[in-house]
Amino acid sequence: MAAKREGLSDKIAIDMTPMIDVVFQLITFFMLTLKTVITEGDFDIRMPLGASAGAAWEDPLPPVRVRMTAGPDGERTSLTMNGQPMGDFEELRRRIIDLVGTGPGSNADKTEVELDCDPTLTYDNVIAAVTAVSGMVQPDGTVVELIKKIKFAPPKKN
């Protein structure tokens, strides 16, 4: 009995090596599988097939026509909304807000935007225009939605 009591009071050294090995293996695995995902989002565009393009649309308001022309390197040379020149996309957004209004009674749901772009125009201009007409981020971070119905004008043959 005396011997047993003595044994119990002994400090048992746990061998940590296998645990640390496994833990490092886990860290290595998780580090290698780490992938930083960039937040991405989508814009819906309405591109019905040619035959139904006119018929399916029962919209009392005429579409807002946004025209962008491109220079030789694909850069944007002009931006017009219904024929009126716009300085930048911020002005386009202000004019869209003037046109459809915000909040209750807004015509944003009933309005459609048609993007008419030169084929050589770089695509980031298209996304900038879509961003300008589809909404506005307020200083507090909330988003005011504007026009959601966006389509491309038929490509020009050249």
């Binding site: 989002g41 298209v126 900038a128 988003v143």
Partner: peptide, 10 residues
């Protein structure tokens, strides 16, 4: 991808 303020994930 082009960058947009309104590109919120679906």
């Amino acid at each position: 991808l082009p960058v947009s303020q309104l590109a919120k994930p679906a």
